[in-house]
């Protein structure tokens, strides 16, 4: 801080010699810069939306709402329907949430209520942070070479066609990827529960389990819901890890072992090869759908989160 103070004085002294008008001009310029930066940031986001909208205009015109309900994706016949990908994305994301929920919930409770300090909680926190830092391409790579053979051997035992890749494999990888995020969201929410409430519970002679079940969970339910929503927001836009293990099959999956395709991975797979404006436009429309869903999910999730924080 010392340095800043000195430079402060320094400027003040110099400032006395300067003309007032030059200061005002600089002031205006500075404000201009700030506003310009803010406007640039806003226009980038707006620009993304507008570009996607323009890019997908052709497909919106051609298929209308049918685009979402049709299950045919046939570039040769110029028929494009996004239903298989919407179902692929929803099923993998929901399954991933289901798989990750007990783990992220448990670790959040454990970290925020049981082990606030100590080497184990340190290790746990460290692991969660490391997991969050691993790039998704590495999850996909690892999934392809380690997880896929494991899933395949299960499929052989269960009598399914042993693809190895498919909805369930993608869901497991996604679950591992969203655990850190979901866990930190859940700890955040649990921390918002007022201390008085918890203490009152313990004072009544309740066990820890009972405090968690009867006080913390009901209190935090809204936050947990928004946490789930935001974790879902993370999962559904994930591209690379899913692309590598989902099987890239443009049909509606029959069961959780079927290969499928997600919205993000069909873009990754076909964007460079889409010949013809309608094909390209349809892929951009899938991008637009992703953008809109992320807008809705994050808006609702953040609103509930903010309300929770204010309530405290």
């Amino acid at each position: 801080m010392n340095q800043t103070e000195i430079s402060c004085k320094d400027y003040r002294l110099r400032n006395l010699d300067e003309q007032g008008s030059s200061t005002t001009r600089k002031e205006t310029l500075f404000r201009f810069f700030l506003i310009a930066a803010a406007i640039i940031s806003v226009s980038i986001v707006m620009g993304i939306f507008v570009s996607l909208l323009f890019g997908s205009w052709k497909s919106i015109n051609e298929f209308g709402l049918n685009f979402i309900w049709s299950s045919t994706w046939n570039p040769a016949a110029k028929q494009f329907g996004a239903l298989p990908f919407i179902i692929g994305t929803l099923s993998t994301s929901f399954l991933a949430l289901l798989i990750s929920a007990p783990f992220s919930f448990a670790s959040a409770i454990y970290l925020s209520l049981y082990l606030k300090n100590g080497w184990f909680s340190g290790l746990l926190k460290f692991s969660v942070e490391l997991l969050a830092g691993i790039p998704s391409i590495i999850y996909g790579f690892w999934g392809l070479f380690v997880l896929v053979p494991i899933v395949r051997s299960f499929e052989i035992k269960l009598g399914f066609i042993p693809y190895g890749v498919g909805v369930v494999t993608a869901s497991i990888i996604l679950a591992i990827m969203i655990i850190p995020f979901a866990s930190s969201m859940a700890s955040e929410v649990i921390k918002l529960v007022p201390q008085d409430l918890k203490e009152a519970g313990f004072a009544m002679g309740a066990t820890r389990f009972e405090v968690i079940k009867n006080i913390i969970l009901p209190y935090a339910s809204g936050g947990i819901f928004s946490g789930i929503l935001l974790a879902f927001g993370r999962a559904f836009g994930e591209t690379m890890a899913v692309t590598m293990v989902i099987g890239n099959s443009n049909i509606i999956p029959k069961n959780i072992f079927s290969p499928a395709n997600s919205m993000a991975s069909v873009i990754a797979n076909e964007f460079t090869e889409a010949r013809g404006n309608l094909y390209l436009s349809s892929l951009i429309e899938i991008g637009l759908l992703l953008f809109i869903i992320s807008f809705i999910v994050n808006a609702i999730g953040n609103r509930i989160m903010k309300k929770m924080t204010v309530k405290k």
Partner: peptide, 20 residues
């Protein structure tokens, strides 16, 4: 069905690339 770089397959599963 016809001839194209990608067609609507009546049966089967898809692999990406020759290697897939």
């Amino acid at each position: 069905i016809g001839r194209n770089t990608s067609v609507a397959w009546p049966v089967g599963i898809g692999g990406k690339g020759n290697s897939g």
